[in-house]
Simulated scan of single mutants.
Amino acid sequence: MAQSNLYSRVIGTGSYLPPDRVTNQDLAERLAKQGVETSDEWIVARTGIHARHFAAPDQTTSELALQASRHAIEAADIDPQSIDLIIVATSTPDFVFPSTACLLQNKLGIKNGGAAFDIQAVCSGFAYAVAMADSLIRGGSNRTALVVGAETFSRILDFNDRTTCVLFGDGAGAVILQASDEPGVLSSALHADGSHANILCTPGNVNKGVIEGSAFLHMDGQAVFKLAVKVLEKVAVEALEKAQLSASDIDWLIPHQANIRIMESTARKLHVPLERMVVTVGEHGNTSAASIPLAFDVAVRDGRIKRGQHVLIEGVGGGFTWGASVIRY
C-alpha cells in the first residue's frame, strides 16, 4: 500500500568509461584506411565532440554496468544485498534475453530475489528508468533501487557512415535511489510518439538465427535535431510545473549528451545559463542511455552538484521517446 509521505532520494552515483579513449584524430585515421573522410574540425563544429570511449571486444554492456554500479554502491555506502530493484536502461543488451539487469544482479552477487529488468527507450532510457524506480519506491513495493544506463553503441555503428559513427561512444552510469521521508525525485514526465520511429532506428531483427534487415544505427540528423529541440523544452517545463518550480530554481541542467547545439538550444529556451548546464559530450560523445548518469556522476564527484540542490535531467531518443525528471539531490 502506498505511503503518502514516502519519497525516493539519490544516495549514491557512479560511472565507468572503457579505457580505450578515441580522439577525433584517432577516429579520422581509422576511417581514412577504409576510404571515409572526416576530421577533428568537421566533428567538433557539428557536434562539440572531441573524443569518445569504445569498449574492448570482450567488454559487454553488463560489464560496463557492473563497474558503474560498484562505484555507486560504494558512494552510497550500502550493502549490495539491500538492493531489491535493478533497472538497466540500454539499447545494446548483452543478449536478446535474459535482461542485462538480471546479468548485472548475478555479477553483483545479489541473492535476495529482488526485481531486475531492462528498459528500452534508447537515449531517454535513464529518464524512464528513474521515473519507474521512483514510482515503485513511492508505492512501497521497493526500498533501494539500482538504476543504470549502460551502452556499447560502438557495436551497432556503421563505420562507413561518417554522419553517425563519429557521434557515439560506450559507457555506463548508475545511481542508487532509496526510500526516504525527505523529497528527492520531485517529478517526472515521460512521452513517446511512435510515428517518428523511422528517423532514428536500428531496424534489424533476429529470425531463425540470422539478422534480417540492418543491424546498424540509422539516423535522419536534421529531423532528429528539430524534434529534439522542440520536445525537450516542453517536457522540461512540464516536469518543472509538476514539481512546482521554475527554471530559475534549477541549479543544474543535465541534458542527454547528444550534440552541443541541441543542448545549448534547449538551455536557452529554458533561460538556464549555459554555465549551469553539465556538459560531458566533448569527452564522452553520445552514450545514449548512459549519458545522463555519466554526467550526473562527474558533476557530483567534482563538487559542482551539492546536497539540497535542484537538478533537472532530460533526454530524447529513438522511438521517438522523451522524458525529464526534477531531482533534489
Rank of each mutant, 00 (worst) to 15 (best):
A133Y: 02
G282P: 06
N106E: 10
R21A: 11
Q67M: 07
T38I: 08
M1C: 06
D134L: 04
L64F: 11
A32H: 10
G194R: 01
E238W: 02
K107Q: 14
N106C: 03
G194D: 02
F159D: 08
V10E: 10
A51P: 07
G48F: 01
G221L: 04
I199K: 13
I254N: 13
Q67N: 13
T152Q: 13
G171S: 03
S135Q: 08
A76R: 08
L103I: 06
A115W: 00
V10W: 12
N24A: 12
Y16A: 02
Q178N: 12
G319N: 09
E241T: 13
T100A: 14
V231S: 11
D40A: 14
D20A: 05
F216H: 14
A51I: 09
A299V: 10
P80W: 05
P255W: 00
D134W: 04
S154H: 12
G315Q: 08
V88K: 14
R143S: 09
T164K: 12
L190Y: 01
A56P: 04
A127H: 14
D26K: 15
A89H: 15
L245W: 05
R46T: 01
I156W: 10
F296E: 06
A243Y: 01
V235A: 09
R307I: 04
L136R: 00
R30S: 04
R46G: 15
E212S: 11
Q67P: 05
A55N: 03
T92P: 14
I49R: 11
V316M: 14
A236C: 15
E264N: 15
R307D: 14
L157Q: 09
I211F: 15
V311P: 12
D220K: 05
R70H: 03
N142W: 03
